[in-house]
Simulated scan of single mutants.
Amino acid sequence: MHEMSIALAVVGQVETAARAVAGEDADPPGARSVTLRVGELAGVVPDSLRFCFELACADTLLAGAELRTEHVPGAARCEPCGADWATGLPPDLCCPRCGGGASELTAGRELEIAEVRWSRPACTAPSMED
C-alpha cells in the first residue's frame, strides 16, 4: 500500500515547514488540517490515504489533523487536432474528435499539498498553496 509512504511524506513535509517557520528556539505550530489535490490518474485511493494519514500523524505535530482531498479529474489534449477531453476511469486516451492517441495528459496525475491550516491563528507559517 503506497498510500502509507505518501502519508508519511506529507507529514514530514508539513513538519519541516512548521519547524522552519518557528525557528530553532520557538515551539512549532501544529496543523488542524491538510488539503491534498489528488488526481484520478495518480493511482491513489483517497480512503486508504486518509486511514494511513491518521496513523502517520500519531505523535507528530499533525496529531489529530484532518486530511482533506480535492479530486482532480483526468484530462487530455490531442496535439494534432487540439481537442481536449475528460479521460475518465479507466482512462480513454483516444481523441474523441480525430481518433488519434492522446498527445498530452493535462490533468489528473496531481498529488500535491494544496493547503495547511495551522492550529494557531496568528502563526506565520506559509499556507503551502500552489
Score class of each variant (00 low, 15 high):
Gly64Ser: 11
Gly64Phe: 07
Ala65Arg: 12
Glu66Asp: 12
Glu66Gln: 15
Leu67Ser: 08
Leu67Gln: 11
Arg68Phe: 04
Thr69Glu: 15
Thr69Cys: 13
His71Asp: 11
Val72Cys: 04
Pro73Val: 04
Pro73Asp: 06
Pro73Ala: 14
Gly74Asp: 06
Gly74Phe: 02
Ala75Gln: 12
Ala76Val: 01
Ala76Tyr: 01
Arg77Gly: 03
Cys78Ala: 09
Cys78Pro: 06
Cys81Trp: 00
Gly82Glu: 04
Gly82Ile: 04
Ala83Pro: 00
Ala83Phe: 00
Asp84Ile: 10
Thr87Ile: 05
Thr87Ala: 05
Thr87Asp: 06
Thr87Leu: 03
Thr87Trp: 05
Gly88Ser: 11
Pro91Leu: 05
Leu93Gln: 07
Cys94Asn: 10
Cys94Gly: 11
Cys95Thr: 02
Cys95Val: 10
Cys95Met: 08
Cys95Tyr: 01
Pro96Lys: 02
Gly100Asp: 12
Gly101Gln: 11
Gly101Cys: 00
Gly101Ala: 14
Ala102Pro: 01
Ala102Asn: 03
Ala102Asp: 02
Ser103Arg: 03
Ser103His: 05
Glu104Ala: 14
Glu104Trp: 07
Leu105Glu: 10
Ala107Trp: 06
Ala107Phe: 02
Ala107Met: 04
Arg109Gln: 14
Glu110Ser: 11
Leu111Pro: 03
Glu112Asp: 12
Ile113Pro: 02
Ala114Cys: 06
